[in-house]
Design a protein around this nucleic acid. Structure first.
Lengths: 70, 70
DNA sequence: TAAACTTACGGGGAGCGTAACGATA
DNA sequence: TATCGTTACGCTCCCCGTAAGTTTA
């Protein structure tokens, strides 16, 4: 979840990985797991970076609220 | 953490296990892991049940506060 | 070429269950 | 004996890292 927020806020998996101090593949895997778990695509990947889908944008708001409580 | 709170509140591992709907060994293992992690004994075991140590009593207050937020 | 994301493989920790055991009243 | 807690073994899930691959500017 933190990974997802970082990815959207940073605009890419690599940047998110740097911010979280984890490897980039780890972020990729976490994102895939989250999308699989929810059954929804959360971001659109490109070679430039990442852009949230509508579902991703919605989740972002909720995710921030949850993380703010923890 | 929930296990710890349940154990103290119920006064025993078996009772806590019933409340949490998990097996009694699972609670025992969780408690041991928590005590190992913290490096402190949290409860005194007896054949009657369990009594919190001073450290346990202190943690109980904090644990309840944390759980109330989650 | 460089930077992005993905895939493949494996390790480590947390949490659980069942089975068996030890201790006490 | 009944009830308490513990130990032993194995399982699954999650998260991670490294290494190698694919795509695109």
């Amino acid at each position: 979840m933190r990974a997802f927020v970082a990815v959207v806020e940073e605009g890419g998996l690599s940047a998110a990985a740097r911010r979280l101090h984890v490897s980039q593949p780890a972020v990729s895997q976490t994102m895939q797991a989250l999308e699989r778990q929810l059954g929804v695509q959360l971001v659109v990947r490109s070679s430039a970076g990442v852009r949230p889908t509508e579902a991703g944008a919605t989740l972002l708001t909720e995710a921030r609220a949850v993380l703010a409580r923890c």
